[in-house]
Design a protein around this nucleic acid. Structure first.
Lengths: 189, 189
DNA sequence: AACACTAAAGCAAATTTTTTGCGTTAGTGC
DNA sequence: GCACTAACGCAAAAAATTTGCTTTAGTGTT
């Protein structure tokens, strides 16, 4: 996952990674974001700056790395008993989380990095996986559920887009988008 | 617009801004992006680094500034004779432009900056203005046109979202999204 | 047209960050 | 336990950013 944790001679990632990540999170709370420098993180983490430079390259990559870990949901989406209300509940929580100060920072951190590898798409995949879970749960109940890509495009995308462009959506609006998707699959059924 | 171009004693922006912008664009073409440094830009532009630092703060702000100017469309959207085909044509061009290498960089540059001011929302506003133009044109012809916010949320947002997350949409998909919006307003009419 | 006023730009020194070479240490597989 | 490899620490060198002060160029007024 973090690339070098595999079984190869010489690897030593776990400890350093943990303390650096912790240092980043601590400093991000303690001071304005642009004041968080690599030398400062290094000192807080008890490692040398060069370690961080060599391992992450720059602040952006490091921040993105931390952000992705925070994005990873710690619990599966709530089960409210019905497909549509499941999706609504998930969306409400997702939107709130993303619109929050830290949430926006995370999105930006991930997008900004996009150095070469697909760190950004990894982040999107996490969301998709959550939705797949909801879809599967619905299927298990014999309920209809919109295509996951459609949910991404018509519900998640506008939420993120508006957050990025500083004009957050309100709940009634994404509720409407969800309603549309369910209407559409109802027509076909 | 660029803040200091107003009528105030002491202003001197125009010349420096022009040469710095030009230098940025030239260097961005000539070398990998991370190799473009402020000192290099300063030399190319024939100004002192400190001038750039004081005026823009850092590379991100400067890049965003340049990107926004490039985003500003130089011609109004094509007139294809009908509201729906106008929107389709505009969307095709927009998506292509944004999905291109330089387009993606621009999006990122703008989003990354988001220092304090609403540079990002300015960028969204440019898109909105284009859509308003299409809507007005349709109105002039007596044709129905979807709500601009709906177009932003259901057509533009997924295009940008997918580009950011490195999984670009294909044409048939946004065509479908456009179709949905037109169906919806047809139902109400 | 000259004058006063203000903010931007130049310059250079001080500071901080980033890069780099090399020796050391810790984790892996045999 | 042994050999091997990559990550880390350390320190010097290079590059970047910041900062105080001076000079220069626009603006508005008389």
């Amino acid at each position: 996952m973090t690339a070098k944790t595999q079984t190869r001679p010489g690897g030593r990632s776990a400890r350093v990674q943990a303390s650096v990540h912790a240092a980043v999170e601590k400093l991000q709370h303690a001071m304005p974001r642009d004041a968080v420098t690599i030398p400062a993180i290094a000192e807080e983490a008890g490692v040398t700056p060069s370690t961080i430079y060599r391992r992450w390259g720059d602040l952006r990559e490091l921040f993105a790395d931390v952000a992705i870990q925070r994005l990873r949901p710690d619990s599966p989406p709530a089960d409210t008993g019905g497909a549509r209300s499941d999706l609504e509940a998930w969306t409400d929580q997702y939107a709130e989380e993303m619109a929050s100060g830290p949430g926006r920072k995370m999105i930006q951190d991930v997008l900004i990095s996009q150095g070469e590898d697909g760190k950004a798409s990894a982040c999107c995949d996490i969301t998709r996986a959550q939705l797949e879970l909801l879809a599967e749960r619905a299927r298990g109940r014999g309920e209809a559920f919109p295509c996951v890509d459609d949910v991404l495009d018509q519900v998640v995308a506008p939420i993120i887009y508006r957050i990025l462009y500083d004009q957050p959506l309100d709940e009634s609006r994404w509720r409407r988008f969800i309603a549309r998707l369910f209407e559409e699959i109802a027509d076909k059924g």
